[in-house]
């Protein structure tokens, strides 16, 4: 995987240098939190788990975990998910 790491590093430096946003250049998720009521996750790769207390969304090569109360998926579009409810935490893990 050394070649892929090198490629990623080069891409990152390149986008930093040209000040291009990461979500386009590096295919990273763009996550927008509105208070603790809503979270928009763009550029996702699908849902891994859903129940009213926990939502896991696959992004690029990581998983975004949203925990809270009464979570609902308001929208599910091919490239955007909107989670609504009382959000307690948002975390990334591999």
């Amino acid at each position: 995987m050394a070649w892929k790491d090198l490629k990623n590093r080069f891409k990152r430096q390149f986008s930093d240098y040209l000040e291009l946003p990461g979500d386009i250049m590096l295919d990273l998720p763009k996550i927008v939190l509105v208070g603790n009521l809503q979270v928009f996750i763009e550029n996702h790769r699908g849902i891994q788990e859903y129940n009213p207390q926990l939502v896991r969304v696959v992004v690029n090569d990581k998983v975004v975990e949203v925990t809270g109360e009464n979570l609902t998926l308001r929208n599910i579009l091919p490239d955007e998910i909107c989670v609504e409810g009382q959000i307690n935490s948002l975390s990334f893990y591999n």
């Binding site: 699908g46 849902i47 859903y50 009213p52 979570l71 609902t72 998926l73 308001r74 599910i76 091919p78």
Partner: peptide, 17 residues
């Protein structure tokens, strides 16, 4: 189910337990 549906272009909303 959701992932397959979304990939087929079926729009789902208000997913609630």
């Amino acid at each position: 189910f959701i992932n397959l549906a979304v990939s087929r272009g079926v729009f789902l909303w208000d997913v609630t337990g």
